[in-house]
Structure formats: structure tokens, C-alpha cells
Design a protein around this nucleic acid. Structure first.
Lengths: 147, 147
DNA sequence: CACATTTCCTATCTGGTTGGTGTGAAACAG
DNA sequence: CTGTTTCACACCAACCAGATAGGAAATGTG
């Protein structure tokens, strides 16, 4: 799958935070309402994003969440890594990966998975939250753009 | 993860089948032994590969499995698709994907996942079982090649 | 036909992940 | 102190991953 609902939710939330901008934090409840994400579930996702350093959170009245960096400096690759763990391909138990008996074959497959990982970073690294914001806005401006 | 143990096992098995070549089928037990894969587990994997049309199987004495096509015409992308299902990225429940309330945002994210899928096919489409066979052999020939 | 061989089908098990909810503690402003 | 809001923890049902077991179906040999 590579991308679960959590990542989808995280991107929706970060887009809202980035679109609002400024230093006014946004409450979990507001994000959940605007992004149609279950509120309690979103809470845990936001905690992950905070632990990864992508957002800063403040509690108490008028608390909430805001981007830790400008939206054009947060890549989708980073977001996925924060939520799904390291963006790696291939059996994650590479350390104790049930060796095939042929080390050359093991190294060969490992090399293929590394190629895939590089391709993923090549695509998801340059795409930022700011790109997401602008792409979505472009689509909503010209709604005949989805065939 | 994108790539599970099953796919790893499938590639090991297909490599053995392709390396042997010819029209002499290879028994599940032999594949399992040479590839260090649990035999009963490999059985199910081979059934998947057969249903996908990648191998042909014959039962009874002197039965076994052999590649349905030459090894250079079987891509790793095909193998993964046979085992993991369609090589798609993003929430698999794209049909009933908990709409975000903003169709433009939905379409935007969907576009990103499509980009990733194309990158995956760009990498895994050209790599064939024959490539795997030769890469592994090259590595075993020059064992100082893994840093 | 009887028989051994080998693939194929189905069921089952254990553990982990996913998506989601609930309860309450900790921080924070007025 | 009081209300607000994030944070931490426990819990749940459903599903998937890896694996094993038993037997049915096919197929070649005598």
C-alpha cells in the first residue's frame, strides 16, 4: 500500500495549516471538521507530526497547531516518513530476512529495492505542502480539469 | 512496505526457474530447499504466480513448475502485481475514500499517488527475471562488490 | 486398475497492523 | 480556580502476514 489513511489525513491537515499560514494556531477540532477526519484519530496523527518536528502545538485556550516551517520547506516524503516510518521498500526485516542461501541473490534484490526507494524520494522529495496547496487551488479554479 | 516476504520468495523462485531454463519442470520441494523458503508457504505463492500466468505447473510424478515465458519477458513489476495485487499507491479504498470535503484536494492527492505509481513502473517495469539472474551472477563472480 | 507422486484447495493459527473510540491527566489563559 | 485544549494510555474490531496441516484432484508408471 505504502500510503495509509493516516498519511492521507496528515496531508489534509498540513494543507489546512499551511493554507492558513501566520502564527494563529488551528485547533484539532477545526482541522477535523474541515478535513472530514475523525477527531480523536486526528489527534494521534498530529502528535506524530509534532514528534517529527513538522508542526508545533500549544495547549490551553486559543491553543492548537501550526506548521513548524514554511509550507514550501515541508516535503511529502517527510510527511510520509513521519507517519509510516522510514520510507523503505522491501521486507523490513532486512536484518534477519530469512537468507536465501545465496548472498549474491540477497544483495541483488536489496539493490533493486534501493533503486525503488531512490525513485520514491525522487518523486516525493520535491513535492511540498505548498505544492499541494497550490495544486488543489489550481484544480478548484478550473474544475473541468479532471477527465 | 510495498514489498512483502511473499514477493521476495516469488522472485527467488522465479529466478531459480529461469536459471534452470529448458522444459524440465522444477518441483516445489526443490525450489523451497534451494531458495530457503517454507515449502507449504511457497506452494500458495506458486499458485498465485500460475493464476497470473507467469508459470505453468504440471502435477503428478515428474511434475513441477516452469516459466510460462522466457525470463527476459517477465518483469519484476509483473511479479509484484501478481503477488501484492495491483501496484497501486494511496489508500486502496479510493472508491469510498472518506472524501475530504474538497474534491480539488482529493484529485490533487490522487494525482500525486499516480505520479508515484508511474515512477514505480518506470523502475520495476524494465527489470526482468533475466536481469535478476544476471545481476546475482555478476555479484557472485566479483564478491568484493558490496561495500 | 492400483499406486505413488505432486500440485491444488481449504481451513486454521498466531501475531501484528489499521482505523477508530474513550477516559483521563497535564498544560495553559483569564 | 475554571474552562479549554493538547497529550498519554488503554481498548476494540477487523483485517493482513507469515506459516502449517489435511486432504482432494490430477498424472505418470506398472
Amino acid at each position: 500500500m505504502l500510503v495509509s489513511m493516516r498519511s492521507d489525513y496528515a496531508l489534509r491537515a498540513l494543507r489546512l495549516l499551511g493554507r492558513r499560514g501566520g502564527d494563529a494556531p488551528m485547533k484539532t477540532a477545526d482541522i477535523a471538521a474541515q478535513a472530514h477526519v475523525p477527531e480523536k484519530y486526528l489527534e494521534a496523527i498530529l502528535v506524530s507530526l509534532r514528534k517529527a518536528g513538522l508542526i508545533r502545538s500549544r495547549r490551553g485556550p486559543d491553543g492548537g497547531h501550526l506548521l513548524a516551517r514554511p509550507a514550501h520547506l515541508v516535503s511529502v516524503a517527510e510527511v510520509l516518513a513521519s507517519i509510516e516510518g522510514p520510507l523503505t521498500v522491501g521486507p523490513r526485516r532486512e536484518d534477519e530476512r530469512a537468507p536465501s542461501g545465496d548472498p549474491a541473490m540477497d544483495a541483488c534484490l536489496h539493490g533493486v529495492w534501493r533503486e525503488v526507494e531512490q525513485a520514491l524520494h525522487g518523486v516525493l522529495g520535491p513535492i511540498t505542502i505548498d505544492d499541494i496547496i497550490r495544486r488543489a487551488q489550481a484544480r478548484s479554479a478550473t474544475p473541468d480539469f479532471n477527465i
